[in-house]
């Protein structure tokens, strides 16, 4: 397949970078909030999932020539301000993780659309697998944010 003139590599670079930034942010948040055992354990687990996504990208990068993209770095700087301390800090950190994970989610959606147009089952399968787990990451952040927000915003520590 002649991949010249296609922009799949652009998005592979974007998702690669975004997943890498997510792993980085998850690791930082998990270590910083070690006294919140569920946040620590779950962020470690979710980071493992994202590392798995990056591994699944390898054969596709080969095929579509990934174009390294500096945007995710900038995005992490823009979206991830953590890690911060205290109840409110935890909500803000989880908030940023939610934003980063949604960025990842959108990348997988865009790539899955392209995979369908390309009739590339391998790419489509990877996109679906990874998107499914990314969705679970997003849902965890949302559940934990909803739990923590009332206490963090209303009751002083």
């Amino acid at each position: 397949m002649n991949t010249r003139g296609m922009h799949v590599g652009n998005y592979l670079g974007l998702v690669h970078g975004s997943e890498t930034r997510l792993v980085d942010a998850l690791t930082k948040v998990s270590e910083h909030h070690g006294d919140e055992p569920d946040v620590f354990q779950t962020c470690q687990l979710l980071a493992r999932w994202s590392r798995g996504h990056i591994e699944q990208l390898a054969p596709l990068v080969e095929k579509y020539r990934e174009q390294r993209n500096p945007e995710p770095d900038a995005l992490e700087k823009a979206l991830f301000h953590g890690p911060r301390s205290g109840g409110l800090g935890l909500v803000r950190d989880l908030h940023d993780l939610w934003l980063l994970a949604n960025e990842v989610q959108l990348c997988w959606t865009v790539l899955e659309q392209a995979a369908q147009a390309l009739r590339d089952e391998e790419l489509e399968g990877v996109c679906q697998n990874c998107a499914r787990e990314t969705k679970r990451q997003v849902k965890f952040f949302l559940t934990r944010i909803k739990q923590a927000a009332p206490q963090a915003l209303v009751v002083a520590e």
Partner: peptide, 19 residues
């Protein structure tokens, strides 16, 4: 607004001072 707070989280809120 979310499930009632579970015990381990209650103790954590005591630890951080909000309970």
């Amino acid at each position: 607004w979310s499930p009632p707070t579970h015990a381990m989280q209650i103790w954590r809120y005591c630890e951080t001072g909000s309970i």
